[in-house]
Design a protein around this nucleic acid. Structure first.
Lengths: 167, 167
DNA sequence: TGCAAAATCACCCTAAAGTATGACCGGAAA
DNA sequence: TTTCCGGTCATACTTTAGGGTGATTTTGCA
């Protein structure tokens, strides 16, 4: 019988895949087997066009092989490395303008929050980073804006950079 | 002849691969064809064990299919982003970094909005200054954030200053 | 040790920012 | 001429920021 060859195919390839899939492949093979037997009966009875029969078998099993390979094999992975620039500022010449800090009457904590604000963090992110609640940061930022006489965080950051309060 | 089926296999699958490979596949198929013909002659002449012959064909073409699929399959692309650090010295002498502007693909208008953003203006203020609607500024800012790969205006301003896109 | 400033947090509310989607127009490029 | 892109605007919605008020707890210092 032909079936022993099918089993060899399964055994040769099966260990690459999951057990569940083997059943599916087995069923597919069985269907193919029946189809072949049917064709065989018809064409052998007619006793002609063996080439056609063989051709169909060849195409079918080539397709089967392709299907098996695509299903079973782990996808080939091609790694593409993309360089992404991240920007650093080398500001070795930063000296904190303590005088301005004192003039604005900013506390240590407020300065800290202002610093993180300048880094583009949201209030929630600042809160998480400092292990305090969002409300606390809101209070701090409100204080900062009042002391700096600005209305928005963007203005506060801009002013702070101009005054050399933050790098 | 059987060969026409082989050609169909090639034609069906060939367009997925390089032209060079098709030649290799063709040669392989030719070899298989000769092998089959040889087997056919032997077994048909003996007029027996057709099942064995068919089984061999099935196994061979399954193997061929697997081989084809593995060769032809397009590899899955996996992108790895490597961060490359670049250091910019932001001096008091501002020269617009046109290269970065082009790299970020920022339009004139977007640059204008970014500039005003950096000045600490609200979207409404920017809209008034440019004589356009608030929604327009929102659209622009959303575009800017997407192009600069940032989430907030504070981050956009920070990045823009580092990249010398704005003074 | 008591007091003022700093730090913490809550609640409620409004304003502003940001997201998503779709549409229109005019100019430039294919 | 068609297609594409930049600029404009809208509508609806969600999220974040900010304002105002009040309260409790730490903490530095006189």
């Amino acid at each position: 019988m032909i079936s022993k060859y099918y089993f060899r195919v399964i055994l040769d390839i099966g260990h690459l895949s999951k057990n569940k899939q083997i059943i599916i492949y087995g069923i597919a093979l069985a269907v193919l087997l029946f189809l072949l037997k049917w064709l065989e009966t018809r064409y052998i009875l007619l006793d002609q066009k063996l080439d056609v029969y063989l051709g169909i078998i060849a195409v079918l099993f080539t397709a089967l092989g392709i299907w098996l390979a695509l299903k079973i094999r782990k996808p080939k992975v091609e790694t593409v490395i993309v360089e992404k620039k991240i920007v650093l500022t080398a500001g070795p010449d930063f000296i904190l303008n303590e005088e301005e800090v004192r003039r604005l009457n900013l506390s240590k904590r407020e300065l800290e929050v202002l610093q993180l604000m300048a880094d583009g963090l949201s209030n929630q992110e600042i809160a998480s980073k400092l292990f305090v609640s969002l409300n606390t940061i809101k209070t701090h930022s409100a204080q900062i804006f009042e002391k700096m006489e600005v209305k928005r965080r963007t203005q506060a950051v801009d002013m702070a950079k101009r005054l050399c309060i933050i790098p």
